[in-house]
């Protein structure tokens, strides 16, 4: 089966589920069979959150993907990218947001948060394609950290032939009308972040 397997990971409250909903809708609009699964745990309380999304030209059976099977990881937070590394195919692609959300063991000084260069080195040592984007900084230029998810979707959209209008339509199916314009702008800003990179 030629499925494209995505893993969206981050910290509860960052908007990963909305991003995974949009990613599913883009798959559907692109003509794929789609399955998605949110492993929420206790999502809103600052825990680790992941979603699996699968697009395929054939029937998709399992909603979740095993270790070593992910093609694209969209990591909303640096440490979460490292945590979910075992899911990646070595030839896969990681897009990691340069944001850090410190677990309480770190803020209370019991543990150190790895440096950005350490994290990048770990990712690069294991996965062929690693891209770091500063989605939070981009989102804040629109005045709201709430658009980090659509900025990151813009970044990952760079890797797929689906037109921007397909993504916009998928975003409009999920985002409230009041916030839609802001999120479409954020999406394009995220898409522009990757334009300098070749695939």
């Amino acid at each position: 089966m030629n499925a494209i397997n995505f893993l969206v990971c981050g910290v509860g409250g960052q908007g990963t589920v909305v991003a995974s909903d949009i990613l599913s809708n883009v798959g559907l609009a692109s003509g794929y069979e789609v399955k998605k699964s949110d492993v929420l745990g206790l999502a809103q309380r600052g825990g680790s959150v992941i979603s699996h999304i699968r697009w395929s030209n054939q029937a998709v059976h399992a909603p979740m993907v095993g270790l070593g099977e992910i093609d694209y990881m969209l990591a909303f937070e640096r440490l979460e990218a490292v945590r979910r590394l075992p899911y990646m195919k070595p030839e896969g692609t990681v897009i990691v947001n340069a944001q850090e959300i410190h677990p309480i063991a770190v803020t209370t000084g019991q543990m150190a948060y790895p440096s950005p260069s350490q994290i990048l080195a770990t990712l690069q040592a294991n996965v062929a394609h690693v891209y770091e984007v500063n989605a939070l900084a981009t989102a804040l230029t629109f005045g709201s950290s709430r658009t980090v998810n659509t900025v990151l979707l813009g970044a990952i959209s760079h890797f797929f032939p689906a037109s921007a209008s397909i993504w916009e339509e998928a975003i409009s199916q999920v985002i409230r009308p009041k916030l839609l314009e802001l999120n479409i702008k954020a999406f394009h800003a995220g898409r522009a972040l990757m334009e300098g990179d070749s695939q």
Binding site: G13, G47, L67, G68, E69, V82, R83, V106
Partner: peptide, 19 residues
Amino acid sequence: LLRGLAAEGQAAARPITVC
């Protein structure tokens, strides 16, 4: 087989906390 990358997946635990 199907065991995943032997990557250093260790990352500080993220205990859930109140909002």
